[in-house]
Amino acid sequence: MSLACTALAVPGRLAGVTARFAPGRVTAICGPNGAGKSTLLAALAGLLPATGAVVLDGQPLAALPSACRAQAIGYLPQSGDIAWDLSVETLVSLGRLPWRGAPAPEAAAAIDAAIATLDLEPLRHRPLSRLSGGERARALVARVLAGRPRWLLADEPLASLDLAHAAALMAALKAEAARGTGVVVVLHDLAMAMNHADQVLVLDRGAVAAAGDPAQALAETVLARVWQVAVRWHGPPQARALALDARPA
């Protein structure tokens, strides 16, 4: 099982990205605003007209029927805008749409598992309009998990969550990776990426600026080059914090 892209390019937004993603691991995509993170994620999911190739399990993604692609790759867009005030359960059940004709017990089991994984059981019948931001973000992730994708591509699922909720959701994503799913997630919070991702891909102006394990890809020198800020990592591994470097240059 693998997901890889070669020379993936979208005019004006992505300039030839080559990368390889591993199943069972959390890969964080980081980069300054406008670096092409969301574009890369959408192109990996096969949702944007792009040049270059995305290869899913040895097969070019563009050649796959859309139903197969939808079953293999779960995509969570950045905008959590839901048109209708669905209940949590109904929202999660939409994740089953690619599995037309699957037996009903299987669908029910997948929906139950997704709801349980994200700790949404008490909120199951609550309408989205009555959820807090953190609960809503969890419900949106559960929607994707209900489709049991082999790859989970999430665009800033932690955006606008407070620390506790962000940590809980990140833990859920890691647990999903531990079950064998390949998780690719756009993260704005560099400390979150440093401490919790298995590998990191840093984008800058549409191209890969660094890639590898977090300590290497998010090294202070890389941050200085890509984000153009002088920063320092503090604390032990797995619990690092980022601070602006206040010392005079």
């Binding site: 959408a42 139903a67 790759i73 779960g74 995509y75 867009p77 839901i82 939409l94 749409l97």
Partner: peptide, 20 residues
């Protein structure tokens, strides 16, 4: 009907669910 359901999640998510 199914495609309209998927569209509830927005244009990109609907396409990721296989909507043409």
């Amino acid at each position: 009907a199914r495609s309209l359901d998927a569209l509830t999640l927005g244009d990109l998510a609907a396409r990721s669910l296989g909507v043409d």
